[in-house]
Structures are given as structure tokens and as C-alpha cells.
Simulated scan of single mutants.
Amino acid sequence: MKILVTGASGFIGGRFAKFALEQGLSVRINGRRPEAVEHLVKHGAQFVQGDLGDPLLVQRLCRDIDVVVHCAGAVGVWGNYQHFYQANVTVTENVIKACLGQKVRRLLHLSSPSIYFDGQAHVGIKEGQVPKRFSDHYGATKYLAEEKVFAAEALGLEVIAYRPRFVTGAGDTNIFPRLIDMQRKGRLSIIGNGLNQVDFTSMQNLNDALFSGLMDTGPALGKVYNISNGTPVPLWDAVNYVLQQLNLPPVTRHLPYGVAYAAATLNETLCKLLPGRPEPSLFRLGVAVMAKDFSLDISRAQQHLNYAPQVSVWAALDEFCQWWKATQSAPRLTH
């Protein structure tokens, strides 16, 4: 089997490309940063650099490919709608057209549980519980991209979409690095009572779910799947566990939810008025994410993908910490 992994210079795409190579698959990769995929090329991946906004490039990428694993896209909360639409919807449309044009058999699409975010607590949320309106441009455009993917099924493309929650492990540059930086600067506080429980996903478990999507047939196809470790943990326990492993002081200071939300509202408003609209240091959505319970129902993945999380949240956090310490202690080149 020959697969294409987009977004391979990012955390999830890079980790899955490595995993696929280890399983003996032929892997072509695309990403924004050539230096970030050197290790994959050394292990046999074929790297094709270029912008997925270019339809002709995407057609070339998909030539002689059996399955595309589409991990590329824009993430974040801040930015205009057009930026997110281009990176998450237009690029996905280019990938779909290339899959159809090059007779690719299957498309695995990496979506996001940000689709569900509405500032409220959710426990065991199911795939069909999509809000009537989305909280940000990221969630809105990820859902639009999903709709494009599933529309392609009627044209003969086999499709599966994934919504993995808080993915972590070696290579995570999104969740814990930001929290570590805030704590080092003395800006991290427990929002609310600190008892909120949330889902994480070990990258190793997500690899298993994606690999099942490469191989499974029949009832597994044509569906979107929540992916997590299936065992919510207290968010601030996880944060302090990581800080302890890295010999950093724990977060002990509490900030009432209402105060944090008001501060985030003010921060966002000021940044919208400033020249260049700089990114705020605090977002209303981020305050809700850090203060509310949030977990996914993964029964559909368990039933149709035979998904059974093998790696615990704590093992995934250990893996992240070991990687983080290694990267921080590695010698830096000077010029």
C-alpha cells in the first residue's frame, strides 16, 4: 500500500508518517518545513514540498497513491475567516479533487472536536451533537471540510473522518509547550475550581485508529469518529504532573471563571483595535476549555474501528516529558 500524508511536518502528520513507515508502508509526505521531515526521509519517505493551495501540485502528490491521510490545516483561535477557510476547506477540496482525479481509493481526514466547543461543559459527547453555531472560525471551517469529505463518498471515494481530543506524546508542540511557557512566565492560573475532567489522546492510540482506517472496510467507512483515551482525567492534575516531571513549580493559584472570562473579553477587544490585530494572550474560548468538563463518547470507534486505547494518558504524558527534556537539553547550532 502506498499512502500520502499531508501535514507531515506537523506533530500528528509526522508521527503517523513515521508509524506507517515502521509498518512497512510506502509513504509519500508533504509539509511546510523540510527540516522537520528529514528524519522521515532518512527512513524512506518520499518528500514533495509545495503548497496544498496549488491544485496541480495536489494532483501530482496523489498520483499512484492508494490512501491519502490528510492532516494538514490551520489551527488556532485567532485570525480572519478567510485564512481558516483557505487552509481547512479550500485545501481539503483540492485534496478531494485530486483523490478523484488520480483514482485514489480512500481518504482519511483529520478533523477536530473543536467543532463541539460552545463554551459549555460536555461529558460523553457523541458525533452527532454538533452545535447550531460554531464558537470560532477554526471549528466552523473544520466542519465545512468534513461536509466536503463526506459529499465525495457519493462520487466513489471511500472516506473516514477523525475528531481526536487533546493529542499528546513525543512531538506535541501545541498543548503542553504553551502551558509550560505560561508557567515559566508566572502567568498560569487554575481557572475555576480546578476539578474539571477532560479527555486526552495518546498519539500512539491515534496512530492505531488511523491505521485501522487504512485497513478496515464495510461498516467502518463513511463515518466520523471521536477519538480519545476514553478515560477523562482532571485537567489540572495532568498539567501539574507534567510540570512536576519537568522540575517546574505546580500551578496553585486560582482565578475565578468570571474574572478570567472578563479578562479574556477585554484582551480580545483590545487586540482587535490595535494595529495588526496581535494575537491575545488570553481567549474566551481558551478560558472555557481550561475550566469546563469535556469528554467524548468513543463507542462508535470501538465498534467500527475496533479501537481499544492501549496507552494511558499518564504514559503519553511521560512520553511527552522525556521528549521535551531531550529537546531542551540538545545543543543548539550557532552561526
Rank of each mutant, 00 (worst) to 15 (best):
E147P: 00
K2G: 01
E268L: 01
A140D: 14
D136V: 00
H43M: 05
I3Q: 10
H137E: 14
K148F: 09
R163E: 11
K185E: 07
V69I: 15
V159T: 15
G124E: 12
I125C: 02
N94H: 11
A330M: 13
P177W: 04
E22L: 10
A220Y: 07
G156T: 12
N205H: 05
F176I: 05
Q129P: 07
S135L: 10
Y138M: 06
V313R: 02
R178H: 14
A330F: 08
S228Y: 03
V77L: 13
W314T: 13
V198Q: 14
P256A: 03
Q23F: 01
L195A: 10
G230K: 02
L270S: 03
S135R: 06
R165L: 15
K42W: 02
A45H: 09
L155R: 13
G14D: 10
R15E: 12
V5P: 04
I12E: 05
R300N: 07
N226H: 15
P131A: 03
A74W: 05
P219H: 04
R63A: 14
Q322N: 11
I29E: 07
D216F: 14
G73Q: 06
Q82L: 11
T201Y: 03
I125K: 02
E279V: 12
L195F: 07
G222P: 09
K42V: 13
L235H: 13
Y143M: 08
K142S: 06
I175S: 04
S9T: 12
T6E: 05
R60F: 00
L21E: 12
V289H: 06
Y116R: 03
G169P: 14
V313S: 07
I115L: 02
R163I: 01
A154Y: 08
G276N: 10
S295L: 02
A87H: 14
Q183A: 12
F283H: 09
T327N: 09
E268A: 00
D64I: 00
K148V: 01
G79D: 11
E35N: 07
Q244G: 08
L333T: 14
V130L: 03
D181I: 00
G53P: 05
E268K: 03
P232W: 08
K126E: 14
F166P: 01
I298K: 03
G128K: 08
N205K: 00
F134Y: 13
G171W: 04
Y143W: 15
L155Y: 11
G276Q: 09
R33T: 15
G128I: 04
V259W: 15
C62N: 09
L110V: 02
N226L: 00
L285V: 09
S312E: 06
K18F: 15
V233N: 05
A145H: 05
E279C: 05
G124S: 01
S189P: 04
G14E: 11
E147V: 10
F283K: 02
Y257P: 03
I115M: 03
R187G: 01
H109V: 00
L282C: 07
V167D: 07
